[in-house]
Every structure is written in C-alpha cells, then in structure tokens.
Amino acid sequence: MRIRRSLQAAALIAAAVVLGLLTVQGSYALWNATTSTTPGTVSSASFDVKMTATPNSQTTTNMTLANGTSANLAITPTGTFLPGDSAYGGVVVTNNTNAGGSFNTVITATKETVTSTGDGSLALNVTVNAKRGTSAADCSTTTGYTVLGVSGLVSPTVPKGGSTVLCFQVTLNSNPPASVKGQAVNISLTLTARQCGVPGDC
C-alpha cells in the first residue's frame, strides 16, 4: 500500500505602531511525500506551527485555524514612531508537530507590502528591516537588522518542539513630509513554514 502525505501550514500576523499599523501576513507551504508501508493501522499526524507575538507574548495562535484557514496574529511593537525613530516587534515560531520521526521545518518571512491611508505618503517614508533572533528579547535590541529583501528572511532549521525567532524593525524617515501626520500605515509580511526532509526542500 502506498500512502501520500500532504502537509501545509501558514499564518497572518498583524502589528500596530503609533502613527500607523504594522501588519504581517502569513501563508502555507505544501509538502508531498510518498512512501511504502506494510498493511496495518494508519494514523494521521498534526502539523501544528505555533506563533507567539513579541513583546506581547500573551498573543498566541497556531498558523492554521481549526477550519483550515490562515491565522491572524497581532503584534504590538515597542518604540515611539516619530521621525527618525524605529518600532520593534517580532514572532516566536514553534514546531509543534506530533509527526513521527524527524520532522524539521524552516520558516520564511517574505518581503513586506506597505500601504497607508490618506495620500499614501506615509508608506513611502517607512522602511522595514528584519533579523533572526535566538530569544524574544533579541527583537527589542536595535542592532543586527538588515533590509528584508525579495528573498525574505529564512530561519535556521527548527526541530520538533523547537522554536525560532523572527524580529522586525519599522523605521520612519527622519524628515517625512507634513502630510504623513495622522496617517495609518499597514505593513504585511507572509510567514511560510516548510517541512525539511522532503526531496527538494531545505
């Protein structure tokens, strides 16, 4: 008997900053693998990836909701969003799968999409940088951030029961036009969890 396994996980993260909104979007990656097994009992595994917002760690959700849709996670960054200043936030991603054997994952944050209210000038004056952290506290430090390029930010391999931290820095231009006053900015990023060990992945 041949069994085809299909696993997927994704997430939407939202963040708010003073003078605007920081929103991070997530999506799922699909893995397929085929293996042979002898007749017997076949049980399914749960591919759960938990997301915890930082610094507001009380906000937690699985990437996939019970109805199979992507989850939304609110992040409230630290910092005052004034000209030339930055706000900081991030997400702790945990591999909570109960699948048997080695089941490692890699998490990727894609390049942001920035929009704003009003004439849209605030979006043009905001930059987003990212970095990998080893703990949630790393997201509050101001060093180590780089531009979130087209290829996004890729985590190290995350084993079952392990976690990785992705940190984001939102910076307002030091000399924005007066028109940005009172505008809200939305910054969306997609988080994707991929299973390692399937041919062609990780």
Rank of each mutant, 00 (worst) to 15 (best):
V128D: 02
T113D: 14
T78C: 11
T64N: 11
A71S: 14
T61A: 13
G68F: 07
I13W: 06
S121H: 11
Q58N: 15
T171N: 08
T61K: 12
A53N: 03
N104V: 02
F47Y: 07
F103D: 01
Y28W: 04
S188P: 08
L21A: 07
N56Y: 13
T146M: 02
P83S: 08
S121E: 01
Q195H: 03
P83T: 15
A136G: 09
A16F: 14
T34Q: 12
T76N: 12
V91S: 04
V93M: 08
L7I: 07
L124H: 14
T60G: 05
L82T: 14
S57Y: 11
K131V: 05
T34W: 10
T146G: 12
V180D: 06
G133Q: 02
G90H: 05
A193V: 11
V185E: 00
T134D: 04
L30T: 09
K181T: 15
G118I: 06
V93R: 08
S151P: 06
L148Q: 00
K50S: 14
I3K: 06
A33E: 14
G149H: 09
P83I: 12
T35E: 09
V198M: 07
T60I: 13
I75Y: 06
R132I: 14
S121D: 07
D138S: 07
N56H: 13
D201Q: 14
G20A: 01
G118L: 08
N173L: 02
A9K: 01
S46I: 06
D85H: 15
A15S: 13
I3T: 11
A45M: 09
G89Y: 05
T134E: 07
T61D: 10
M51A: 14
G68Q: 07
T59I: 13
V158T: 00
C139E: 03
S27C: 10
V18Q: 12
T192C: 04
G20S: 01
A11G: 10
G200L: 04
S27W: 07
I75L: 11
N32I: 14
G200M: 04
L153H: 01
G182H: 13
S46N: 10
T60L: 08
V165S: 00
A184L: 15
A66E: 10
N175M: 12
V154I: 03
L191E: 10
A11F: 11
G182S: 11
V18T: 15
A15Y: 12
